[in-house]
Nucleic acid binder design. Sequence first.
DNA 1: TTTTAAATTGCAATTATGTTGCATTAATTT
DNA 2: AAATTAATGCAACATAATTGCAATTTAAAA
Lengths: 130, 130
Amino acid sequence: MKNPRNTVAKTEILKLINHSPVALSHAEIQSELNGLCDRVTIYRVLDRLISEDEIHKVVNLEGVVKYAACHSCSQEEKHVHAHNHAHFSCEKCKEITCLEDIEPSFKIPKNYQVKEMNFTLSGICPNCSE
Amino acid sequence: MKNPRNTVAKTEILKLINHSPVALSHAEIQSELNGLCDRVTIYRVLDRLISEDEIHKVVNLEGVVKYAACHSCSQEEKHVHAHNHAHFSCEKCKEITCLEDIEPSFKIPKNYQVKEMNFTLSGICPNCSE
DNA sequence: TTTTAAATTGCAATTATGTTGCATTAATTT
DNA sequence: AAATTAATGCAACATAATTGCAATTTAAAA
């Protein structure tokens, strides 16, 4: 069991993600950080933030991995529902937005044990459809 | 506008995907083909098959890209609903299966134009839970 | 059947993405 | 302030995917 520490890199990366309305990729985070730390460090910080339940990972329809804070989730909820809400992936601007209030309903054969779900809708977001 | 041609590589790759009960990755396809063609060709054939609506792309929760045929979809349907069914991604065996009959319902703010959806559930598949 | 035009392929090179080992640095604990 | 150990940087490696271009193959036209 490790004892996590607060470092400049971790603080800055979390701030970036928390203040972004859309999910960010590793590359986007790196360019925002402007050389603050090594790219390997970013990967490691992201991993740590995930295991500390501060952020979560989203994969868009093209397979691009992004990272997002879950604004609507309380600290409690984070541990319970594992960020199983829906995401919207815009075809034009490529941005991923959390759709906090969408709760899809579905039925699945009971021999499947569902632990997580990824529900990503794609199309045109409000910004790009104007 | 290109005039697609049938080649050995294309035929074999489509046959592989059509006969597989689970979605296949590029690497899996390559090893099955046993040197029939270059890995670049496989990428290009897969792209072509997608644009010809013969197969579709699925991304699992870890961001691994796989390719699958849509067995339950008629040629007609392929053009209409764009393979918008659900997938199940097994944590243990890493296999992706199409859940043909699941149709999730959801409500979304109307300023979002939804064109496609990716609904991937993950957990333990029937094979691995025995 | 032979010719022709364009689609497809192979190969080499390049880019993107992610991981690992290890020595060094920095954050906590005492 | 010193000790402990988490975190970082760097180099190297691994894998996934893309691009340009010359050579090949397909399918249609002659």
